[in-house]
């Protein structure tokens, strides 16, 4: 089975972990319900950006959103979660966006 090729358990570096705490608040891409989560590895397995880390087989630790600012908000983790423990939360700058679209259209005048 192709998907079991690499088993190496991996945790992100302490420097990364420290930064994440702060970023999780700013980008809060997903919320995991501690009560509902069965620590099954599926969200880690499916995340296309390699953002969710869960030590395989560890039934006590919650999955970690290791790189919150790299989330695509695709919700694949939410869709695969067997106990509906995951909810995608869009940050404020997405939900109530105030960017002037003209600022995206370049600095070159006619």
């Amino acid at each position: 089975m192709d998907d079991t090729k690499n088993h190496a358990s991996h945790t992100c570096s302490p420097a990364v972990a420290a930064r994440n705490e702060e970023q999780a608040l700013a980008f809060n891409p997903i919320r995991i319900d501690e009560q509902k989560c069965v620590r099954c590895d599926l969200c880690d397995w499916i995340c296309p950006g390699d953002l969710i880390y869960h030590e395989e087989g560890n039934k006590t630790k919650l999955p970690v959103i290791a790189y919150p600012d790299e989330c695509w908000y695709c919700g694949l983790c939410q869709s695969i979660c067997p106990t509906d423990a995951i909810e995608v939360i869009f940050p404020e700058q997405m939900v109530h966006n105030r960017t002037d679209v003209l600022s995206l259209l370049g600095k070159v005048g006619a």
């Binding site: 600012d69 989330c71 908000y73 940050p91 700058q93 966006n97 960017t99 679209v101 600022s103």
Partner: peptide
Amino acid sequence: SRNASGLAFD
């Protein structure tokens, strides 16, 4: 390039 949300991965 930049987008409205300012989030590179959005």
